[in-house]
């Protein structure tokens, strides 16, 4: 099979699938500027929905909560995930196979199973649902993605670098801070960005472990979406989508550049 020029029919097929992926989002964004609250008929351009969005203090609070959880979860998950990826690559230890298997299984486990198992855990520990339960849950579901991102980067590195540093008398902690982290930096930053988007968008797990006292943005979007299509919600979804899109593009640029 030679790598050949794409046939027209192939190109059309690709285009149709991409249209299927992106047309609904494009429609959503276009209609968030439509000057009509009910119909989907075009009634002229307006930014009213964005104005009412930005003056809704409840949304700002939910967005702030999501931001805080996202930043904290991304930071902690990236620290733990990076340490895990480095250990899995460099060291032998008891239970290494088990740990490897667990990270792999966690990635394919349906979110709902993780959601209810954490709900059960927090309930048995008598922990109130809110900030802490959300943060712990988000760190947990982000960790495997960091491990995979960082591991794929470190496994392409030359093991002799570490040996050389060791021969020259560097301690493990020094090797980690002076050699491993700087070399892995693009993957680490990419991991942080991906964790943030995962956390910022999560519905399935947050749905089970959040409480009424601590509202977050995706759950607010979900409860609004259940009531039907509204122009304010179109605007809110457009803003959220564009924001996460930028983060994903940025993180992809970071991992692509040098690999």
């Amino acid at each position: 099979m030679k790598k050949s020029q794409t046939r027209p029919i192939d190109a059309i097929y690709l285009a149709l699938i991409y249209l299927f992926f992106y047309l609904p989002i494009a429609v959503l964004i276009v209609y968030s500027f439509n000057n009509s609250s009910y119909s989907l008929v075009w009634h002229g351009f307006t930014t009213n929905w964005y104005h009412s969005l930005f003056s809704d203090s409840g949304l700002w609070i939910a967005a702030l909560h999501s931001l805080i959880i996202g930043v904290l979860a991304a930071t902690f998950a990236t620290i733990i995930g990076t340490l895990a990826a480095v250990s899995l690559y460099r060291y032998r230890f008891m239970g290494k196979g088990l740990l490897n298997g667990m990270i792999f299984i966690l990635i394919v486990t349906p979110d709902i199973v993780m959601g209810i198992s954490l709900l059960l855990l927090f309930s048995i520990l008598n922990m109130p649902l809110g900030f802490w339960s959300l943060l712990l849950a988000h760190i947990t579901f982000c960790i495997p993605f960091v491990v995979v991102t960082v591991y794929s980067r470190i496994s392409g590195m030359d093991k002799n670098i570490f040996e050389a540093a060791k021969d020259l008398g560097a301690r493990e902690l020094t090797i980690f801070t002076k050699i491993t982290v700087p070399l892995l930096l693009p993957a680490i930053i990419s991991g942080i960005l991906l964790c943030f988007t995962l956390s910022f968008d999560d519905v399935m797990i947050s749905y089970f472990v959040s409480g009424p006292g601590f509202e977050i943005l995706p759950l607010k979007i979900y409860s609004m979406a259940r009531l039907g299509v509204k122009p304010e919600l179109n605007a809110l979804c457009s803003v959220t989508f564009i924001l996460t899109l930028l983060l994903v593009v940025l993180s992809q640029k970071l991992t692509r550049k040098e690999s």
Binding site: L28, D201, I221, A225, L233
Partner: peptide, 8 residues
């Protein structure tokens, strides 16, 4: 990106 937003 959010599959909730895409479903909506």
């Amino acid at each position: 990106t959010s599959s909730l937003i895409r479903s909506y």
